[in-house]
Write a protein that binds this DNA or RNA. Structure first.
Lengths: 152, 152
DNA sequence: TTATAAAAAGACACACATATCTTTTTATAG
DNA sequence: CTATAAAAAGATATGTGTGTCTTTTTATAA
């Protein structure tokens, strides 16, 4: 569904937001460790979302990533638009170059319904709402560590 | 969402079904022309669905693709399972290696709802139901031809 | 002002999906 | 039996997403 770039982007932003609340400005290496993603690639992804203005960064000693106006909520949709492109929610589920109500593919109506509900979902969820779940230990940003007692 | 392999597979099968009703056994070149797909790659895709037993084929003069028991309905889900793999409907929307109700990612519950509705859609739609729409000119398998009168 | 720590940028590597081309196998028509 | 037509198979090519590595730029600490 969503590409790795988008997945790492969202998970990174959630982690950054949580750390910001603690007064920290994490770097991409710390971020990668905490969301279980490849370090270098995560740096590249953060360049993309930073250039797009979704998050801010500071170079140099003591630098890192942070939200300038953390009170403004950032929807997953805004992230997806940057990382996947605007066409993402407009493509035909059947692969047709042109497909709409006037000129539908055979699954157009049903597919549009599903697509809309996914659109509505990512439009409703925000980096802040996801961060809140994680902070309350109701969800995780990476797979849990394997403990000595865990069964494989 | 779905890969090109799956898209061409479904569109090919719908075309084959429609031609079968007319007593024809189309070859992959004819199929590719009529679903607007690359010829050689369509041949490869048809090898995959044929090996999986979703459709039958005959080599040699007068050969082509056909449904052995065209009365048995074939869901899009069965096609997707072959072309995308069984994991397709079980992957975390957030990219986590393990994600379930016990150990959810921050969008688990909402994402599962959307995923289920897509699953339900492809489980309900069949090659036959799509073919019926196309036969009744209620839908198309490829973009419509540009006519001289059409506006670009 | 110099050393250091961090992001940014650029070049490169790899895997996989997508696509093309050629050869082989198989069935039928004549 | 031979020529032909078709799918199957194999080899190769291309593109994009994913990932790594090195160098450059920038800010801070000392």
């Amino acid at each position: 569904m969503l590409g790795k770039t988008t997945e790492y982007a969202i998970r990174s932003l959630v982690y950054i937001y949580i750390q910001n609340l603690k007064g920290e400005r994490p770097g991409f290496k710390e971020i990668a460790r905490n969301i279980d993603s490849p370090e270098g690639f995560t740096g590249k992804v953060l360049q993309i979302v930073t250039r797009a203005g979704l998050v801010s960064s500071m170079k140099g000693r003591g630098g890192g990533f942070f939200f300038d106006n953390s009170e403004k909520s950032l929807s997953l949709l805004e992230v997806i638009n940057v990382t996947e492109g605007q066409e993402f929610f407009h493509k035909c589920g059947f692969g047709l170059k042109s497909c709409d109500a006037q000129n539908p593919c055979p699954m157009h109506d049903e597919y549009v319904t599903v697509r809309k509900s996914f659109y509505s979902l990512v439009n409703r969820l925000t980096i802040q709402s996801l961060a809140s779940k994680v902070s309350q230990n109701k969800a995780v940003l990476k797979r849990l560590e394997i403990t000595e007692n865990s069964i494989d």
